[in-house]
Design a protein around this nucleic acid. Structure first.
Length: 575
DNA sequence: GCCGTTTTCGGCCCGACTGTTTTCAGTCG
């Protein structure tokens, strides 16, 4: 219900902007935003405390509350229906076209009757747009290009695909003699799981030289814009990169500003105003005097709060917590002491070889332990092991550990597995075999489309198995390809807490499962988590940083993540 | 339309760039 209402309020904001109404649109946007992140359903809130309680929701006043009630009762909002009727355009489609906002969409409808993407494309192709007042030849071409891009891509890219490429560009920029500092910014720096476009920030006293280099880099297929301090390009891989160049004295304020999120910044600027300051990318000002700007830390300090880590800057309560000086002490990559989800392809005969490779990587990472967790027999196609093979592996690992001890290597290898949770919640391998392992991961790998109740029961049954310590990639999603499984997460959390079952944060950039929001829920519920890479080759052990980033976005601290602990302490978390 | 230990009325975050304009509106982040 919250999401539906939020969408309606957002659309109403657009319609009001279209008509040139002042300030109301922001009020609707604010309401939409607050509904979106509200943890309790508005229907429940209304049932509990009526209109009065609805008005307690931030951004919801008398008028909004009345509209919410109207929607709850009739599934319609008259005012919204009226606005839609007046301008019957497909907002979703048209707002997705880069360069079109409410005003232009309004004009296109009023003059040419354009309602959707298809009609827009036809009009642009037939050169009907260039002659409209406020439009021109360039706008028409940009519309066509934007439509083309929309068709080709859904507009967002995986963090795991973008980050390595941006790192290369950043290294190139850092090599320029005109460049003093390079930093990522935007959602990339906040480590969101998907990125719309990448933001790079450069400190230089010769911005033009940097901009010129940037737009001429190999791989640039389109220059969206280019000015003295900023430029925006498209790379041949299909994603956009924005570059901003600023002077050194504004580094902190610029980094803060360009890191966002927009919502976080809006609240921050309001706090600045309350204190009699003005905050912009050029600094924190009192009148015309700059009182902070060189570092982010001093800006947050002057605003009377803790420094806020980039991953937290989503206006999800982090500012209030920072003011109260109670910011979480987020985990970091260096806190990770081991990776317990590694596949060795044991039944191919290459197990020993792979385990040695994992050990090599683990040493580089400074780990204290690793855990081998091959699939079990249901997933024969994915090198699933049966009881006998599992016991062979157990013996091998025991022997290997002794060898490591002799050469005085502190690293310890744990022997586990990733058992398959069958449709009825039972395991695909005997409990007798599982009991002999150091730990057991269990995961759902089949019948992912089960209905909500059954799936909830299925996972709960697995968690109640005294041999199961960890549930791997709980939601089973593959980003941009496979939907999440449906189950009652609150119930799962309750049973996880009760049984001491650990939930995995799968670090693969294609999974990131649990995601940031669910990590935070698990933390709140007091459920322990583990960050694993699910590596199938040694290079993938480096993906740990993606898991850590999502854990940080979920406010996770060392105490929430079991593989931040020494082996001795880790063992206590296993059943 | 919302909000308030400066206010129940009068404010609402801020700036860059583009493309259209002859000084600025619209869009974006």
């Amino acid at each position: 219900m919250n999401q539906k209402l939020s969408q309606i309020f957002r659309n109403m904001a657009f319609f009001l902007k279209m008509e040139g109404v002042a300030f109301k649109p922001q009020a609707y946007e604010k309401a939409a935003e607050n509904l979106e992140t509200l943890s309790e359903d508005v229907g429940e809130i209304y049932k509990k405390g009526g209109v009065d309680l609805l008005e307690k929701i931030p951004g919801i006043g008398k008028s909004m509350a009345t509209r919410i009630v109207e929607y709850l009762k009739t599934e319609k909002i008259k005012e919204y229906e009226k606005l839609k009727k007046k301008t019957p355009v497909n907002l979703d489609e048209l707002l997705g076209v880069e360069g079109l906002g409410p005003k232009k969409i309004g004009i296109l409808y009023k003059t040419l009757g354009i309602k959707n993407l298809k009609e827009l494309e036809n009009a642009a192709k037939n050169h009907k747009i260039a002659s409209l007042s406020g439009f021109g030849e360039k706008t028409e071409q940009n519309i066509l290009q934007a439509i083309e891009f929309r068709k080709k891509s859904k507009g967002r890219f995986l963090l795991g695909e973008i980050l390595p490429k941006i790192s290369v560009i950043m290294a190139k920029l850092a090599d320029l003699k005109e460049v003093e500092t390079v930093s990522e910014a935007g959602s990339l720096r906040r480590r969101k799981e998907t990125i719309g476009d990448a933001d790079i920030l450069v400190i230089s006293s010769k911005p033009q030289a940097v901009i010129d280099f940037f737009v001429k880099m190999p791989g640039v297929v389109k220059i969206w814009g280019k000015g003295p301090t900023k430029a925006s390009i498209r790379l041949k891989d299909g994603f956009d990169v924005d570059l901003r160049v600023l002077a050194k004295e504004s580094f902190g304020s610029a980094l803060q500003y360009f890191t966002g999120s927009k919502e976080h910044n809006i609240v921050l600027r309001k706090i600045a105003i309350e204190k009699g300051y003005k905050l912009s990318e050029y600094g924190l000002f009192k009148g015309s005097k700059k009182i902070a700007g060189e570092s982010e830390k001093e800006i947050y300090k002057k605003l009377g709060m803790d420094y806020i880590e980039p991953e937290l800057r989503e206006n999800q309560g982090e500012i209030n917590v920072a003011i109260k000086r109670k910011s979480p002490k987020l985990i970091g990559l260096k806190d990770i002491k081991g990776d317990l989800h590694l596949h060795s392809h044991w039944n191919d005969g290459i197990g020993p070889q792979m385990i040695e490779q994992y050990i090599g990587e683990a040493k580089k990472c400074g780990y204290e332990y690793i855990g081998i967790s091959d699939h079990t027999k249901f997933l024969a196609i994915e090198h699933g092991l049966d009881e006998k093979q599992l016991m062979e592996q157990r013996k091998y690992i025991d022997k290997f550990n002794k060898k490591l001890k002799i050469v005085n290597c502190k690293l310890k290898i744990l022997c586990g597995c990733e058992a398959n949770i069958m449709a009825d919640g039972s395991m695909d391998i005997s409990d007798k075999a599982l009991a002999k392992l150091d730990y057991v991961i269990a995961g759902v790998h089949s019948q992912l489309k089960m209905n909500k109740n059954e799936m909830t029961k299925r996972i709960i049954k697995a968690m109640r198995n005294p041999n199961i310590d960890i549930i791997s990639h709980p939601f089973g999603r593959i980003l941009q390809r496979r939907e999440e499984c449906e189950f009652d997460f609150d119930k799962i959390l309750k049973v996880a807490k009760e049984t001491g079952t650990i939930l995995e944060i799968n670090a693969s950039p294609y999974r990131l499962d649990l995601n940031d929001v669910n990590v935070r829920k698990a933390k709140k519920a007091g459920v322990k988590m583990i960050i694993n890479t699910d590596a199938h080759q040694k290079e993938q052990m480096n993906l740990m940083e993606y898991g850590v980033s999502q854990a940080r976005r979920g406010w996770a601290e060392k105490s929430d993540i079991v593989n931040c602990h020494s082996l001795e302490k880790l063992n206590k978390f296993f059943k």
